[in-house]
């Protein structure tokens, strides 16, 4: 090292640091995508309708993408979220609609279902050597089957209605100005809590270590089983939260809802710069990735383009994201060796 090698502080270095941050590529993506659809969609997209469309979508998928992102940083996947969303929604609707118990009972029961499935996932992943992809596909199908079977058995149909009490609806299912759903604020809340967990609290270090090298993490004395179970319970809880908020918003729950969340959440996370192999990623990146994904997904309806082309853009974005993640990671590593 030469003595006059650049330091990490100072104005010149800080721009360099910003560019080297993994979120930087995602931020550029978000801006480009927004500008693209703003130029096509015009005033409607730039105004409240546009923002409400993509923010509402971003909030729902974002609440799930945050804990799924944590799991991916820890080197695991969670496919079962797609089944937890309807399972929690139907549990809530059955308890508070079919059995007519107070809304809060339904909400708590729905969330408990999410935590329980998360626990099962985490337990299986941490106790066996089976890849988490397979385990969570298994629990997804199990949960779907149970949800369908029990709903038909209890309610006699695949859809259940409920009338939420006004306070619960205000907190979880209301919209401001008929456009901005309160889930947007919940998403912000989730992002702050998970930001604290991952980047501020010492626990976050364990998540990174787990994704970086599982054996070394165990050798370092990190309780990897507890961390894994905690992460899955978090993603189960978040998926259940989205399911419950859907019931309170629409007053009904369907068995076949939520499949889209599986791929959408993973895409948001990958576009957000989380490494597919685990060990790196950030909450800011995941939030930006979610925004990018939602802007494309909803912007297409404002642009006058054939909505079918939206998928092409999302597919291309995903590939670009994965490639640039790799490049940014190499940059971050080579920066250190050059000194």
């Amino acid at each position: 090292m030469s003595p006059d090698a650049p330091r990490t502080s100072g104005p010149a270095a800080s721009i360099g640091n910003l560019i080297r941050r993994p979120e930087f590529g995602t931020l550029i993506g978000t801006i480009v995508v927004y500008a693209f659809f703003a130029s096509l969609g015009g005033k409607v997209f730039l105004g409240a309708p546009g923002w409400s469309a993509f923010l509402t979508m971003a909030a729902e998928v974002g609440i799930i993408a945050l804990p799924v992102g944590l799991l991916m940083i820890a080197g695991e996947l969670d496919i079962s979220v797609g089944a937890v969303v309807p399972a929690a929604a139907l549990t809530c609707a059955l308890v508070s609609g079919h059995y007519d118990l107070p809304t809060w009972y339904g909400v708590l029961a729905g969330l408990a279902v999410g935590l329980m499935i998360g626990f099962i996932n985490g337990y299986l992943v941490s106790r066996t050597a089976i890849p988490s992809l397979i385990i969570t596909i298994g629990t997804m199908f199990g949960t779907m089957g149970l949800t369908l079977g029990l709903t038909v058995l209890i309610a006699g149909s695949t859809g259940v209605f409920m009338t939420p009490d006004p306070v619960a609806k205000l907190m979880l299912g209301e919209s401001i100005n008929f456009m901005f759903r309160v889930t947007i604020f919940w998403w912000l809340g989730f992002a702050l809590v998970i930001y604290y967990l991952l980047h501020v609290a010492p626990w976050g270090n364990w998540v990174f270590a787990l994704g970086g090298d599982r054996d070394s993490a165990r050798n370092a004395g990190i309780p990897i089983r507890r961390v894994t179970i905690g992460l899955y319970m978090l993603s189960g809880f978040a998926a259940a939260f989205v399911g419950v908020s859907q019931v309170l918003t629409f007053g009904s729950a369907q068995v076949a809802a939520g499949q889209a969340f599986i791929f959408n959440s993973i895409m948001c996370v990958v576009i957000g710069g989380v490494l597919l192999t685990g060990g790196a990623g950030s909450v800011v990146g995941i939030v930006l990735g979610t925004l990018t994904f939602s802007i494309v997904n909803q912007g297409i309806f404002f642009s006058g383009l054939d909505p079918n082309y939206g998928s092409i853009i999302i597919g291309a974005l995903l590939l670009i994201a994965v490639m640039s993640n790799d490049t940014f990671r190499k940059l971050a590593l080579s920066y250190a060796t050059k000194k």
């Binding site: 070394s216 993490a217 004395g221 060990g279």
Partner: peptide
């Protein structure tokens, strides 16, 4: 015992 994508400080004190 070390994690390639973590900082030296974080890796040193993992756990």
């Amino acid at each position: 015992g070390t994690f390639p994508l973590m900082s030296i400080g974080r890796s040193f004190f993992a756990g």
